[in-house]
Amino acid sequence: MRAYRFKQFSVLPGFWPAFSASTLYLTLIVLVPLSAIFLRTATADWAHLWKVVSSPQVVASYKLSFGASLVAAVVNAVFGFLVAWVLVRYSFPGKRLVDSIIDLPFALPTAVAGIALTTIYVDGGWVGRVLSRWGIHVAFTPIGVTVALIFVGLPFVVRAVQPVLAETDRDIEEAAHSLGATRWHTFRRVVFPLARPAVLAGFAMAFARGLGEYGSVVFISGNMPMKTQIAPLLIVTRLEQYDYAGATAIAVVMLLASFLMLLVINALSSADRGKGAR
């Protein structure tokens, strides 16, 4: 068992001010608002809350929110890694431009993204027209929700992986090649394991972002009950009906579930990072 010690001696002063300031900051910005949700839920009638949370419509929205976020995060983990790899390893004209485009989903108001995606992916849109010929409908289906979440989650993986790949020396790959490893072996056993903690961290952030995303999804999903309603939408709907307790109940379930998932992913990530850390 690791013994936790409160203060690590350091010649540099400033542990207590820094520690107190960050604790205070976290309390004000994160803990107080979040505990308000719990308190609000606790004041309500439990039977009512359980009815809200276990209603088929809400359960379906949980499934969609977690399922679509998970798929989107997986897709982003794969392609985000690829994009980061290309940006780190190759130089090509317009590289800086591409590099700044990555951050656009951060900066763009999510409603704008939602409207743009919907316009492209509806059955008559640029992309939707082609896809609908194959019987694939994106807008107003769970696929559309996933596409929107992929869009908003992309920067997280790219920005998490990029610095790690950049600081991995070429000579490690060269060493693997000189020892007879194929490109695939080199990637699977040498390059990827080094980047894996960062990929996991990016995956976790993209996933969390997907769970909370509202603006871009509500346009492309069509918000059909039992089919394309995401959990945040149901929260807003409850609020509009002045059912604050019901809204917070849906929120508490999401909060607990996402907290658990992030905890597990971060634990995996740091266990991975701890192995052979410098």
């Binding site: 020396d169 000579d171 490690i172 060493a175 693997a176 090649h177 020892l179 490893a181 040498v190 052979g276």
Partner: peptide
Amino acid sequence: DRVGERRVGFVFQHYALFRNMT
């Protein structure tokens, strides 16, 4: 021949060890 086919033992200045392996 590619580097892997030449069967050369190459030692790098900065070791280039795989830090995720023992």
